[in-house]
Design a binder for these strands. Sequence first.
DNA 1: CAAGTGGGTTGCCAAAAGGAACGGTCCGGA
DNA 2: TCCGGACCGTTCCTTTTGGCAACCCACTTG
Lengths: 166, 166
Amino acid sequence: MGRTADYSKQSCSIAATLEVIGDPWTLLVIRDAFQGVSRFEQWQDRLGVARNVLAARLKTLVQHGVLEPRLYSERPPRNEYVLTAKGKDLSAVLVTLHAWGAKHVYGDTDSGIDLVHKTCGHSLDPRIACGHCSEIVKGRDIVMTRAANRPTVGDVMPRDAAVGED
Amino acid sequence: MGRTADYSKQSCSIAATLEVIGDPWTLLVIRDAFQGVSRFEQWQDRLGVARNVLAARLKTLVQHGVLEPRLYSERPPRNEYVLTAKGKDLSAVLVTLHAWGAKHVYGDTDSGIDLVHKTCGHSLDPRIACGHCSEIVKGRDIVMTRAANRPTVGDVMPRDAAVGED
DNA sequence: CAAGTGGGTTGCCAAAAGGAACGGTCCGGA
DNA sequence: TCCGGACCGTTCCTTTTGGCAACCCACTTG
C-alpha cells in the first residue's frame, strides 16, 4: 500500500515533520504558497496535480495548522488558503532543500527559482547557524543523540553520531 | 499511481531535490545513515519498512549519488551503504526538519532525538545564516524570484514574494 | 549436516495517485 | 435571457506503489 507508512511510531521530530509535509506534492504546495499562491485553481495550474489530490492536501495542511482557510466569497462558498505562522516557519526547510538542489542537481545551470537575501543583495547561500552562540555550524559539530532513556524500536546504535563532516 | 508525480518538469531546485529524496521513507533512511546505520538489516529493523521498498530506496539513492555502496564481503556479495559528500550535504535539510518538528509537533515534550551543537554544548536551535554577509536571515528578508526569462507552466505570479515574515 | 544470518527478489492485495467528467454558483457578454 | 466560462470542488475509474509474507541463495556457526 502506499503511505500508510507508519513513520509515526518513531517518536522523532524528523519523522513527525514528514508525517505532516512528507506526502507527495505537499511541499510544492507550500512552496507556491510562499510565492503568493492561495487558491485552488492556481495550484492546480502550476503543479498539474490531480484535483482530488490537491483537495486532500489542502485539507490535511489545514488540519495540521500549516494553512488557514479564509472564506473570500460566500455563495458560492470559496476559500483561499494562507500560510499560518507555523507554515511560515517551514521557510527554513524550503531554503535548505533549494540550496541542496541548486548545488547538487542543477550545477550552475539555471534552476528556475532563485532566493535572494535582500539585505545584502546576493543570492542566498544558506548556512546553519546556532541560535545560542550565533556561530556557523559545521556538520561535524552537530551530534545526533538519542534523547534520554527512550526505548525506541531498533536501538542498534550505541554511540552518538556526528552529522556530516563539512 | 502515486508518485509518477512529475515534479520534474518544474525546473525548480526544490522540486528537483524532492525528486531525489521525496519518496516515502527516503529521508528516514538518510537520517539513520547519519546515525551510523549502513546495512540493510539495520534499516529494516529500525524503520519497519517493507524489504522491497527499502531495496528500491537504497538503489535509487545510490543512483543519485547520495549513498555509496561498499562491498564488505565478496561471496556472498554483501555491501553496506555510506553517505557520500553529496549525501552529507543533506544534513542541513534534516536539521531544519528536526527543528520544525521539535517546535511545532512536539511542543516541549521529548522528541526522541536531540541535536546538540558540540562547540557550545547547547541543544541546537538552528537558524539560517547568509553565506555572504554572515547575518542571520529572517524570513522576510528572503525574496523568492522566478529566475530570468524562464517560461514556466503556470506563470501566474507577476511579482516576487517574500518568504515568511519572521 | 542442520539451523541461523544477511541481503535481497517475487507475488499478491490494498491504498493512494492520475485523470477525466460532472455539479453547482456566480459573472459577463450577445 | 440565454450561453459560455471561471472557480472550486467531488465522484468514479484506472494505474502504480507500498505493505506484507514467502522464498532464495550463500555462507557460517553449532
